[in-house]
Computed example of a mutant assay.
Amino acid sequence: MGKDYYDILGIKKAYRKQALRYHPDKNKSPGAEDKFKEIAEAYDVLSDPKKKDIYDRFGEEGLKGGGPTGPGGGGPGTFSYTFQGDPHAIFAEFFGGRNPFEQFFGGHNGDENMDTDDPFSHFGMGGSGMGGFPRSFSTGMGGMGGMGGMGSHTSVVKKQQDPPVVHDLKVTLEEVLSGCTKKMKITRKRLNPDRRTIRTEDKILEVQIKKGWKEGTKITFPKEGDETPRNIPADVVFVLKDKPHPVFKRDGSDVVYTAKISLRDALCGCTINAPTLDSRTVTVTSTDIVHPGMKRRISGEGLPYPKRPDRRGDLIVEYEVKFPERLTQSARDTIAQVLPRS
């Protein structure tokens, strides 16, 4: 006779603590790993309506294709089941990825000598049958994915997402002008296929910098942070920061260039060649007196507008007048004669 899955899950009131008792992390006795796998296999069958129905009618032989099949035998036809699941992954999913030993047993860490009459009472699963499950428990549980009988009571073990991991991403004004792709390497923790052990790996994230993006723009990569059995990985967020520029200052979509001119040029008029972000120069002529802090605006020579990258802000030329450190007496006399007193 094949395995009796109902018996494996504990007609004798054992299932309430079997998953915890036979977990290999807690039970080092011979056969515990096999027993733990049997419990997971039984759970996989009985929590799936189709597999449970075949098992109820034909037993393990019929479920696994070994019993009478087809119309003549009344069996399940071509259906054949083989357990392919990871018992540790099922265990982790059942308990929401957290440490149930700590939750149920606190500081005693799952001591089997403790009174563990009903560790699943937190889930509202007391009653008769398989250690708290009625024989037809799959009706209320909706299979491994839904598990309605448990889902409404498992908020205490619901995984929480870690807070975002924020990195500054420095860009030049030239990169903002043309747009670019930045490749950022991050080091993170990831679960191995057994869903228990953790590896450290590097990953390259490609950040698309679009034309005109302003400082403070955030680019989010969902769930690329550290992963453990107990968490939802954090989002990785890059925040744009402008690198200091040797020539320009940024003012939104405008760029500011400071032109230093002499007092003579400020009074008599001057022409300067102002540089641009794309390595050209524009000629700016002033015939009027230039006051300190005076500005000239050259349209369309700034950065692209973030929402209208086909249009650009302005280049602002800001004058800085350099006063002489000393004057000869002759120069003083000349200036005194020429300039008005008020």
Results as ranks from 00 to 15, higher is better:
38 E>Y: 04
136 S>D: 15
274 A>Q: 09
313 G>M: 09
306 P>D: 04
188 R>Q: 09
170 K>Y: 06
63 L>N: 09
49 P>S: 05
43 Y>E: 07
179 G>H: 07
214 K>H: 07
151 G>R: 11
135 R>V: 11
80 S>Y: 04
86 D>P: 15
139 T>V: 12
39 I>H: 03
325 E>W: 01
203 K>F: 06
318 E>I: 09
317 V>N: 03
39 I>N: 09
207 V>K: 01
113 N>W: 02
240 L>P: 15
200 T>S: 12
53 D>P: 10
314 D>K: 05
169 L>G: 04
314 D>W: 02
54 I>E: 03
335 I>N: 11
217 T>Q: 04
70 G>W: 08
235 D>T: 00
1 M>C: 05
124 G>N: 15
264 R>D: 15
328 T>S: 14
215 E>N: 06
70 G>M: 09
16 R>M: 09
89 A>T: 15
157 V>S: 00
57 R>D: 09
82 T>N: 11
129 G>E: 09
295 K>N: 10
261 I>N: 01
304 P>W: 00
286 S>N: 10
70 G>I: 13
221 F>M: 02
115 D>K: 04
192 N>K: 14
197 T>F: 02
114 M>V: 03
212 G>Y: 00
213 W>K: 05
300 G>H: 08
266 A>V: 12
36 F>R: 04
134 P>Y: 00
164 P>T: 05
336 A>H: 13
153 H>P: 07
110 G>C: 05
179 G>N: 08
101 F>M: 13
110 G>E: 01
250 R>P: 14
78 T>N: 13
157 V>G: 00
276 T>R: 04
306 P>N: 04
202 D>W: 00
139 T>P: 04
116 T>F: 06
312 R>C: 11
227 E>I: 00
42 A>L: 10
14 A>M: 06
111 D>A: 09
154 T>Y: 05
83 F>E: 08
25 D>L: 04
294 M>T: 12
157 V>E: 00
